[in-house]
Nucleic acid binder design. Sequence first.
DNA 1: TACACGTGGAT
DNA 2: TATCCAAGTGT
Length: 356
Amino acid sequence: MTPRRGIDRAMTAAAKLLNWYDRHRRHLPWRAAPGVRPDPYAVWLSEIMLQQTTVQAVKPFYEKFLRIWPRVDMLAAAESDDVMRAWAGLGYYSRARNLHACAKAVAQDHGGRFPDTEEGLRALPGIGPYTAAAITAIAFGKRAIVVDGNVERVVTRLFTIEEPMPRAKPLVREKTDGLTPQKRAGDFAQAMMDLGATLCTPRRPACSLCPLNEECQARAEGRPEEFPVKAPKAERPSRMGAAFFLRRKDGAVLVRTRPPKGLLGGMTEIPGTEWSKDFKLADALQSAPVEAKWKKLPGHVEHVFTHFALRLTIFVASTQVKAPKGARFVKDALLDDEALPSVMRKVIEHARSFEK
DNA sequence: TACACGTGGAT
DNA sequence: TATCCAAGTGT
């Protein structure tokens, strides 16, 4: 046994991980330099965006938001439509509504400063147990037990937790508590996430490079990919529907705003039918927003949501009418600036591809 | 507790 | 092509 081995053995897992983090941390736009306390607003904004969303997808949105609204009071003062437009394309749009509501609450009820306790943070819209713990640790340097999907993967592997998720959450939290150091809890949390994102990956983890490979039970048993154990997922149902792309003579396009809650809540859409399993194409025109000579376009728009797959048939028409109740015309040049979710951008792209 | 809630990249 | 899944929250 070499002296080096003896030192490693004496180090806690947290010390090993922090040592690794100091050398291999990812450099992300929302991370402060080592030793510098980050801006809680930046930490909060990034954490909300990163919920169920990849770092790569978040980066441009984070930069855009920080450019437009550098401080929480400025975001609080923004128009809701502008926030939704800026969020369009990032998904899970209730996050954007809660983001804005949270900014207003911080500005109005907390003097523009984020609460520095988990309890205080947890009371704000869009901040759940994970985000409250993450902000407490990362932005305020206080010890908190931060458990996200990365931590779940790392910890279930370290301890070969056989109980399936999410039932194992209390045990994972308990184990994470045991690993979390008193100091540098924020760095520890980010180190766990970096480890999960770069080495302790869902498939083909790079165990040989892992700073915790000597204490990992799953690695010792040669089956890291078997963790975390998850219950089998229900299959994804299919739904169908139609959308009606109407051009006025001046080129403006008919759109409407979806109801504030639920799927794509508050976002702009091309008017259409309900999306259902038993959609009948023959009945589609009954749902057209105006009477017109609707022409069915060849092909379909396909889009996959988390819990169902959608196939839309697109109808197009051109008329000179007033916008029906609840709908409005948008100049073609301004259409792309609307709060359009990705599925609606596909609809527009499909319709445009058949023009001229 | 279980389900609703987006999107795009990786395999 | 199909499936998985990525720093979860709200109901």
